[in-house]
Design a protein around this nucleic acid. Sequence first.
DNA 1: TACATAAGAATAG
DNA 2: CTATTCTTATGTA
Length: 168
Amino acid sequence: MFCTIFGFPLGGILLAKSSKGLSFAEYVNSHDQLKKVMESFKRRDFSIEFDRKKFHLEEELFSLYFKGKREDFTSLPLDFLSGTPYQKKVWLEARKIPYGKTETYKSLACKLNHKGYRSVGQALSKNPLLIIIPCHRVLSSDGGLRGFGAGLEVKDFLLRLEKGEVSA
DNA sequence: TACATAAGAATAG
DNA sequence: CTATTCTTATGTA
């Protein structure tokens, strides 16, 4: 598995991919966090190899995205190495949310298990593919930001970016 | 309107 | 089984 770090205005994103596609895109803003993520990879028995050259496409897409382009990452091959079947369903559903649009946990839940809105949040909190799976476009039913594991600032930033209020 | 609380789905330990 | 989570609905003031 290969990985690299992509820097953006609020920190960095650790990208990791297998031979099949992108597997992780985790937010890191400190050396400590990076270390933590790497530890968890190690524990999962992944062989890590830094190789920036493997991420031409990803870097391209991310830099376009942070420039405010309507980049959906829908063409990016993904490879889910973690996650339960339910989580994958949630992630796939969240991924269908178009750029700039927002869904609510409830509406997502209705499409999946009918009333497990809380479990939707739980599943999204374990989203391994920040931005690519636009969990930041999922808001609470009154339109407000609820919690965000990777940091509310990131969620807020991403939303503002998509609304064109930020030029990165 | 604001705050406390119950309910309810799925997962990790 | 219990705790936790990117929730929602309801009751009370």
